Amino acid sequence: KEQQNAFYEILHLPNLTEEQRNGFIQSLKDDPSVSKEILAEAKKLNDAQA
C-alpha cells in the first residue's frame, strides 16, 4: 500500500521531467521497502524545480 501511494504521488508531481519520474518509479519497483525515502526525494526535487 505504501508503495502504491508513493507511486501515485510521484506520478502527479508536476515539476518532474519524464526522465526523473521514470527513475523514481523504477527505484520504487526495484526496492519497495524504501518507498518513503524515494517519495521524499521526489518531492524535494519537485519543489526545487518549481
Rank of each mutant, 00 (worst) to 15 (best):
N46P: 00
L11C: 02
K1S: 15
P14Y: 15
Q49K: 04
F7W: 14
L39W: 05
T17Q: 04
S33D: 11
F7D: 04
L11N: 09
I25N: 03
L13S: 02
I38W: 03
P14R: 15
L45E: 03
D30S: 13
N5P: 05
Q3C: 03
Q20Y: 01
V34E: 08
L45T: 07
P14E: 04
N22M: 13
N5A: 13
L45S: 03
A42C: 02
D47V: 13
S35P: 05
V34G: 12
E2H: 05
R21N: 00
A48C: 07
D31T: 09
L28T: 03
D47A: 13
F24M: 04
V34Y: 11
L13M: 14
V34W: 14
Q4G: 09
Y8E: 12
P14A: 12
L39R: 04
K43R: 03
E18H: 12
Y8L: 10
D30K: 14
Q4Y: 05
S35W: 15
A42W: 01
Q26M: 15
A40V: 09
K44T: 03
K1E: 15
Y8S: 04
K43L: 09
A6H: 07
K1I: 05
T17S: 05
Q4E: 12
A42F: 01
Q3R: 03
K36Q: 07
E37P: 05
D31K: 14
L13F: 07
L45W: 11
A40C: 04
L45K: 03
K1L: 12
N46Y: 01
P32C: 04
L28D: 00
S27T: 07
A40M: 10
L11F: 13
Q49G: 06
E19A: 10
A6S: 09
L16D: 00
L45P: 00
K43H: 12
L16V: 02
E19H: 12
E18V: 10
P32L: 09
N46W: 01
K44L: 09
K29M: 14
D47R: 14
K44C: 04
H12C: 04
A50N: 11
K36G: 10
E9R: 14
L16Q: 00
E9W: 15
D30Q: 13
E41H: 10
A42I: 01
G23V: 14
K36P: 09
K29Q: 10
H12Q: 12
K44G: 07
P14M: 13
A50F: 12
G23S: 11
K1Q: 14
K36Y: 14
E2K: 04
R21Y: 03
K43D: 02
A42Q: 00
D31W: 12
K29S: 05
L45D: 02
P32D: 06
K29R: 10
I10S: 01
Q49N: 08
D30H: 14
F7E: 10
G23Q: 06
N15F: 14
E9A: 14
S27M: 09
K29E: 06
E19Q: 12
T17R: 05
N15I: 01
Q26G: 06
R21I: 06
P14G: 07
N5D: 11
T17N: 10
Y8N: 06
K29N: 08
S27F: 12
H12R: 15
Y8Q: 04
L39D: 00
E2Q: 05
S33C: 04
N15V: 02
L28K: 00
A42Y: 01
D31Q: 10
E41D: 09
K43V: 07
T17I: 02
S35F: 15
I25E: 02
I38G: 01
D31G: 09
Q20M: 04
E2W: 03
Q20P: 00
A50T: 13
K36A: 09
H12D: 06
N22T: 14
Q26T: 08
L39E: 04
E19L: 11
E37R: 10
K36N: 11
S27A: 08
S33K: 10
K43N: 12
A6N: 06
D47N: 08
K1C: 04
E19S: 08
F7A: 07
E18W: 15
I10N: 01
Q4T: 09
V34L: 09
N46D: 03
N22L: 09
K43P: 00
N22F: 13
R21A: 05
A6Y: 09
L45M: 07
S27Q: 03
S27G: 07
K1T: 15
N5Q: 14
T17G: 03
F24Q: 00
A48N: 11
H12F: 10
K29Y: 13
R21M: 06
F7R: 09
I25R: 04
E2C: 06
E19T: 11
A6Q: 05
A40G: 07
K29V: 07
H12M: 10
T17K: 04
A40H: 10
S35M: 12
L39I: 11
I38S: 02
D31M: 08
L45Y: 05
D47M: 14
I38Y: 03
Q4C: 08
D31Y: 13
Y8M: 11
N22G: 07
F24G: 00
A6I: 04
N15Q: 03
L11E: 10
K43G: 04
I25T: 07
P32T: 04
E9M: 15
L16C: 00
K43T: 06
E2A: 05
L16A: 00
G23N: 12
K43A: 04
F24W: 02
L13K: 01
N5V: 12
D47H: 13
K43E: 05
